[in-house]
Design a protein around this nucleic acid. Sequence first.
DNA 1: GTCTTGACTGTACGGCGTATAGTTCTCAAG
DNA 2: CTTGAGAACTATACGCCGTACAGTCAAGAC
Lengths: 229, 229
Amino acid sequence: MAPVKAGEGERAKLSRSAVVDHALALADNDGVNALTIRRLATEVGVTPMALYWHFRSKEELMAGLADRIWDEIRTDVDPAADWPAQLRAMLESLIDVLRSHSSASTLLMGSEKLGPSHWQATEKTLEILRTAGFDPEHASEIARSALWTGLTLVMSEPGFNDAGLTEPERAEIQRRKQIELASLPPDRYPRLVEAAVPMTSCGDGPDFHYKFGIDLFIAGVRALAPPER
Amino acid sequence: MAPVKAGEGERAKLSRSAVVDHALALADNDGVNALTIRRLATEVGVTPMALYWHFRSKEELMAGLADRIWDEIRTDVDPAADWPAQLRAMLESLIDVLRSHSSASTLLMGSEKLGPSHWQATEKTLEILRTAGFDPEHASEIARSALWTGLTLVMSEPGFNDAGLTEPERAEIQRRKQIELASLPPDRYPRLVEAAVPMTSCGDGPDFHYKFGIDLFIAGVRALAPPER
DNA sequence: GTCTTGACTGTACGGCGTATAGTTCTCAAG
DNA sequence: CTTGAGAACTATACGCCGTACAGTCAAGAC
């Protein structure tokens, strides 16, 4: 009568959501490229083909991951705040989630089919913008832009591609890039040489990168806002 | 003495740049995923391993493609124009190139190692921003942002993922997405339903999408510009 | 004529996604 | 208690992929 619970030694049943859990952990730890059907199957203790009972294809699995990520994004912004603050809150929530899953940006960029979690976030963003006075066409454009701004802010943080490496490795790679830029011929690339440090690193941490990116976006939207009614 | 020229019936010699040419054409026509070593080799009439004489790995080939694309970007903006106009010109040039190669955005996003062509474009962008009065740190951040804005503007144009399909196929896919959004429960997703058309299509063409995206970016930069000296 | 070397070819390996068919377990109906 | 049906897997195999490694062969150099 009661559903089968996995006993101490027994093998736990597989389920769609359990597979997604493992897959997301795998992608976060070892990168999206390491997420293969075979490896995931091994990790959850089944044959590769077993996964095809729960997902029609690898693409559907990836869509499942994307949906899981969308699900984490909070859409409960303070309705008392003014609209730029609300928009900012949405963007910050997006970025928080993306930063907490190192594979999330890549996943969201790559997945085509989208579901309710994505609709929910988009709906909320559109609502903020429509309430601010933008017409549907502009609101759509800005909402799209907000999503992509979040994705690229995370992906353009220096060192993003080296996620999954140890800290000294990352530092070493960054150091090398910095030297490469700083060693360019200064007569041909004066500005690049001058900016070798900020172009390759985050200085005192990534906070400035994110704050500035968000500020830039919000400032643009404000500047293009429809006249106050 | 004279270098071997391919006669009428003779087989032309392979060269790094010829391979890149073919590869870029292949990627543009059939998508980046269709660009495989084996297929490229077949297309240029050699064994797969022959390509490894000219490139250390597939990754290096891809980097070659990226470099070729960077090379096409014009950096000769009008020095008499004011800095926002110059920045806009750079961004427009980037977008022009990306739009003329349907695989370019994906290629640029994926390639890690960068060369002189990329440095040149970045140098010019930094110069514009430094002359405008931004310090190196802000200039770096804005230059990065400009690049990513260009990439994502192209990739977020509705229908981008369906590049390579015939026009009626694209129209059909777009129509289906539109209907999907328009058919959502209006009580739960009123704004999405309302914006079903602009969220899934470009209306009278993609011009508005690009113009608005560029305007948004430039407006943001202007708003954050350092005080006029 | 032999040697070097640049530009390839041939073969093979391990890994990938997944089609197809077969197996085993669970559990309600008889 | 038997049985049969479906759910949840396993086994095997196919055709791709990138590429390591070794062999081939024409064209100058001496």
